[in-house]
Design a protein around this nucleic acid. Structure first.
Lengths: 254, 254
DNA sequence: ATCTAGACATTGGACGTCCCATCTCCTGTA
DNA sequence: TACAGGAGATGGGACGTCCAATGTCTAGAT
């Protein structure tokens, strides 16, 4: 007999955060193991780039099977905590949020099947972050930063003239826009959002792209930033994202 | 390029952005497996709450061992993609960013050993997000939202008078502040940041807390929001985070 | 007829073992 | 001196086995 799963009456109330008295050990044990490994790293004073004990050593020290510890290690790798190199060892990873990309992308694609709400939410957050932080960034802007931005824009323009895709330059532009803030977390976050947005876009198929318009938008933003006109820069960024939002809506409708 | 942080020891140069041609299969195979599972979910049209195939079925369908598929499943669980319930099955998880908390917390604690920079960066991002988004939130604020906020504040005041910790009310206040935006991603993100901040704070030991002052800060913010005074609300939020930042610095110094 | 306790099937959790893949480092040879 | 190849170590993966948790179903009592 094949009990058809998954199409039954919706199992409601999955994952309510309340303390469901039932599954205490279920979820928590593996999580506890992950925590123990992270604590071990912190306790031993390991720093970024330092090597962790081998899988076997960890298995012995933590008193769990190697397969079990491997599962936790994979999770830690996915969370960007450690880096695993086949045949060499495991190391404390540098800051790296790329792990979040896949999870968020999945969410986005899942929601796109319905109304694409979540993809819009992503744009909203990006818009708030970028247009809100451009002011503080301009405060800290140096000539060097402006020069970097200009060279990025020139590269983007070159690519546009050649008809090449400019997403890499686009990402680089936004990244450098906030470099003055010297906030790695922010840069990583925005990078993640950017990549997720792009992956979702790829998954649903990109509409027609207007390379010249896209380049001009960025030049306009650059101009406002170079002139240290915070209000104008913020407004143009706002517009920039409005445009992205509209385009996404169009594509989703098709 | 991510800005280089301080120490540059000469041992293993791992994790450089270079695409080491060797590490293709190593890192990518497990990642590919995760992607295959996510694609399988999307292809079959599974939605939040629907059941996935069992571990054995997945193992057979994907042509990999059960242990291997389990590692990927654990990763997907950690990324908040699926929910695993012992003895029952695996299900597509609802939006849930709590998975990111542990990874970010680890990062924060790791950085606190040096200069606590990363914890500060976290505050910066929160500050930018909250003070930047309070305006749009006020635009969409209804009387009901205000009532919710007021009741949260009253609960906080009660707790303060009893000398109880108010972190839960604190979190609730900030959550409800942005409820009008109806942006789940944002709420989840801010929740994550809040929890990470709290965990880091716990880990390094909380300094003396002034319950009355804390409550008053929130009342001030509430007042500005209830009066729909965007500028004042934004400024008071800004100051609120400035206070948090100072306190964190004090604790880290001790 | 209804309710409850316990058996049962299903499913994930943990572990051990074996072998393969890949990396680094060292050694030997040209 | 330089290059190639092997040795050793380490992670990657696959089964197989047993354990534990959970939901369901049935038999018995009331």
């Amino acid at each position: 007999m094949t009990p058809k799963r998954g199409k039954e009456e919706t199992h409601v109330a999955i994952a309510s955060q309340e303390v469901s008295p039932a599954r205490f050990s279920a979820q928590l044990r593996s999580h506890a193991l992950q925590t123990r490994i992270m604590d071990l790293i912190l306790d031993r004073g390991l720093d970024v780039g330092d090597a962790l004990p081998t899988e076997s050593e960890l298995s012995a020290e933590l008193g769990v099977g190697r397969n079990t510890v491997r599962e936790s290690l994979k999770v830690l790798q996915a969370l960007g905590v450690i880096e695993i190199r086949h045949g060499f060892g495991m190391f404390v990873a540098p800051n790296n949020f790329s792990a979040l990309v896949s999870g968020l992308t999945f969410r986005g694609r899942l929601s796109l099947r319905h109304k694409g709400e979540e993809a819009m939410e992503l744009i909203d957050v990006r818009q708030a972050l970028e247009s809100g932080l451009i002011g503080p960034a301009i405060d800290l802007l140096t000539d060097e930063h402006v020069a970097d931005l200009r060279s990025t824009m020139e590269a983007m323009e070159d690519a546009a003239k050649k008809g090449e895709p400019l997403h890499e330059h686009d990402a680089e532009f936004h990244r450098r826009l906030y470099a003055p803030l010297n906030n790695e977390l922010l840069i990583n976050l925005m990078d993640v959002f950017w990549q997720v947005y792009r992956k979702i876009h790829l998954a649903i198929g990109t509409g027609p792209v207007n390379l010249e318009q896209q380049t001009q938008d960025h030049w306009d933003i650059f101009e406002a930033v170079a002139n240290k006109d915070k209000a104008l820069a913020s407004e143009r960024l706002q517009r920039h994202f409005d445009g992205i939002r509209l385009k996404l809506k169009d594509v989703a409708a098709a």
